[in-house]
Amino acid sequence: MIFIGIALLISVGLALLISADAGSVVGLTQSQTAQLLPLVVLLIVFAGGLFTRRRPARELLTNLGLWVAIFVVAGLSYAYRDEIVGVAARLAGEMQPGVAMVDAHQGTATFRRGIGGHFEVNATINGHTTPMIFDTGASAVVLTIADAEAAGIDTSSLRFTIAVSTANGTGRAARVALDQLEVGGITRQGIVAFVAEADALDTSLLGMTFLETLSRYSVTQNSLELTD
């Protein structure tokens, strides 16, 4: 019966908390609901005790304290759910810099600076996940030949006639149009990109042909925010 009491407590508490967003619960205001919740807790606890074998007062008080603690934790988790989600997302971003912290309501994707000092971005090109480096100095999205092939681009038919300057020196690239490029939930079609010839580039670059389609992008000390 103790498990039934706990289940009832959690179910009723969550139902009341969720319903409170609508402004009232069975005709009660949020303030009245908040005053009623402790009484509901006590009612369930003592009702559960009536249907179990007689227990020492100390054990009943211990169980009561445990159930109240569970309810308080559940209530705080609900009340601060936005902050908790934000902290969890930031922790995930620190552990995996290329993974975006997406805010669908604001239309933003935020990335944390990597250990090497760059902003690493996991983009999806034609359905293939491609690690890239955010680079405002690149006039276009630039792909390594390996990333281009993984994204389904036929590199054997490309003509590498465009001179480009990369971290490895001067090289040549071919112009292509990407069917789809998605970064942190922000999707674009037909983005112009360059495919660098073999050994000309170590990592693909997220350059201006994508960035200029955004309404805003901003860089702070340790974070990059892209806004659709």
Rank of each mutant, 00 (worst) to 15 (best):
residue 25 V to K: 04
residue 85 V to D: 13
residue 141 V to Q: 00
residue 227 T to R: 13
residue 152 G to D: 02
residue 12 V to S: 04
residue 112 R to Y: 08
residue 125 I to D: 03
residue 59 E to N: 11
residue 44 I to N: 05
residue 63 N to V: 10
residue 228 D to S: 12
residue 118 H to T: 04
residue 35 Q to T: 13
residue 174 A to Q: 05
residue 34 A to H: 02
residue 164 V to T: 07
residue 118 H to C: 06
residue 90 R to L: 15
residue 72 V to G: 03
residue 61 L to M: 10
residue 27 G to L: 07
residue 205 L to G: 01
residue 180 Q to S: 02
residue 112 R to T: 06
residue 75 G to H: 06
residue 28 L to G: 03
residue 197 E to V: 05
residue 45 V to G: 09
residue 127 G to H: 01
residue 170 T to Y: 07
residue 139 S to D: 04
residue 128 H to N: 06
residue 225 E to L: 14
residue 194 F to L: 02
residue 76 L to I: 11
residue 223 S to V: 09
residue 112 R to G: 07
residue 115 I to L: 15
residue 177 A to K: 10
residue 227 T to P: 10
residue 107 G to A: 12
residue 124 T to R: 14
residue 205 L to P: 01
residue 102 V to K: 11
residue 159 R to N: 04
residue 122 N to I: 05
residue 142 V to R: 00
residue 68 V to N: 03
residue 120 E to P: 15
residue 98 G to E: 10
residue 78 Y to Q: 14
residue 212 E to D: 08
residue 172 R to F: 12
residue 107 G to C: 06
residue 90 R to M: 09
residue 75 G to E: 05
residue 96 Q to M: 15
residue 41 V to F: 10
residue 92 A to R: 11
residue 166 T to D: 03
residue 35 Q to P: 03
residue 76 L to Q: 09
residue 143 L to W: 03
residue 43 L to P: 14
residue 37 L to D: 07
residue 181 L to W: 00
residue 97 P to F: 05
residue 122 N to Y: 07
residue 53 R to S: 05
residue 11 S to I: 15
residue 95 M to H: 05
